[in-house]
């Protein structure tokens, strides 16, 4: 039961539910309205009244959302050269994206990041949420706040802070090496950098995801646990059979957020670039690639094509995950 409620809050409403709502919410006046032969003017006036209500929203939506996207798509059909000016090239920019090894290497990098960092982060967040929800933790609000705290630190500050710690020359790593005579691997070296960024991102977002899971856990009626205990279920069994199924929707939404966030990775590598200029290339992540194409290379058109392809890829992956999540939902 509880599971159903939560899923409906978090994800698009299930189909049956949606239809039910529609039937209830539809104004009876329209159902009963006169014969089909009513004058067009009257019908138009009625439809305009509706638009007047959504108008302000639609205007803002069109201006800040549709227009920039439409404009980016428009841009992506052209090419501007230093010699020769601007010309219409149709889909050529898109063809180039698909054969662009720099773009695909950046995509591969964030895909790897997604496969490794996101599961670790969500697992840690889940663990923290379950621990706090268990009611057995001493000082649970202290833990809740401290785990959430990094999320309140701006990403730029967090990255700078970690960057200083990572420094093998003058940073914390350097100090540790000096003090103990160790030679720890350089977190800013080519082999470790992606993991170092993963560490920063995990630190930043464990608390955020924990809060999503924790609030989902709070919705579960406590009586279920009592019933389960009466049936002889232990904590592990309760987690597996009650808690995890109940927060499946929250897990799904957190996963989708994380996928979007990962594909848009920009701040952390862009800031660390000054500390590791040769490891973090201008095409380290797809967003950095789009950024340097337009700002260093003046290739706005190609940059727009890269951005749009990346948006589509993100949408496809996020949608695939959502479909898979919902299918499991139905099977249960």
């Amino acid at each position: 039961m509880a599971r159903y409620v939560y899923v409906n809050i978090a994800i698009l409403p299930a189909k049956s539910e949606k239809e039910g709502d529609m039937a209830v919410l539809a104004p009876p006046a329209i159902q009963r309205s006169g014969p089909p032969g009513r004058s067009g003017a009257a019908r138009r006036r009625r439809s305009w009244t509706g638009w007047a209500f959504v108008g302000p929203f639609m205007a803002v939506f069109a201006f800040v959302f549709l227009a920039p996207i439409g404009y980016a798509i428009y841009l992506s059909f052209f090419r501007t050269k230093l010699i020769g000016g601007t010309s219409f090239v149709g889909l050529e920019n898109y063809q180039n994206v698909f054969t662009d090894s720099q773009f695909w290497s950046s995509f591969g990098r964030v895909a790897l990041f997604l496969c490794v960092q996101v599961p670790i982060m969500l697992f840690l967040a889940l663990l923290a949420a379950l621990a706090i929800d268990s009611g057995r933790l001493y000082g649970k609000s202290f833990f809740r706040v401290t785990i959430f705290m990094p999320y309140a630190v701006p990403a730029v500050v967090a990255t700078l802070m970690w960057g200083f710690m990572y420094g093998p020359q003058f940073g914390l790593i350097g100090n540790i090496n000096d003090a103990f005579g160790w030679s720890l691997p350089n977190p800013l070296g080519p082999g470790w950098l992606l993991a170092s960024i993963g560490n920063i991102v995990t630190w930043e977002f464990v608390g955020y995801n924990m809060l999503i899971f924790y609030s989902a856990l709070q919705v579960i009626p406590r009586t279920l646990y009592e019933a389960a205990e009466l049936d002889g279920a232990g904590q592990v069994r309760i987690i597996r059979s009650i808690k995890l199924p109940a927060i499946r929707g929250a897990l799904l939404i957190a996963t989708i957020f994380s996928i979007i966030g990962t594909f848009q990775l920009f701040n952390e590598p862009a800031i660390l670039k000054s500390l590791a200029p040769n490891v973090i290339t201008t095409y380290y992540t797809p967003n950095m690639y789009a950024y340097s194409l337009s700002f260093a290379g003046q290739q706005f058109n190609y940059s727009a094509a890269v951005a749009i392809v990346m948006a589509l890829l993100t949408a496809i992956v996020a949608y695939a995950v959502q479909l898979r999540g919902l299918r499991k939902e139905r099977v249960q």
Partner: peptide, 13 residues
Amino acid sequence: RAFLRGTAALGTA
């Protein structure tokens, strides 16, 4: 995170 990076993208746009 998505929002911050979105703003960066807007800057590009």
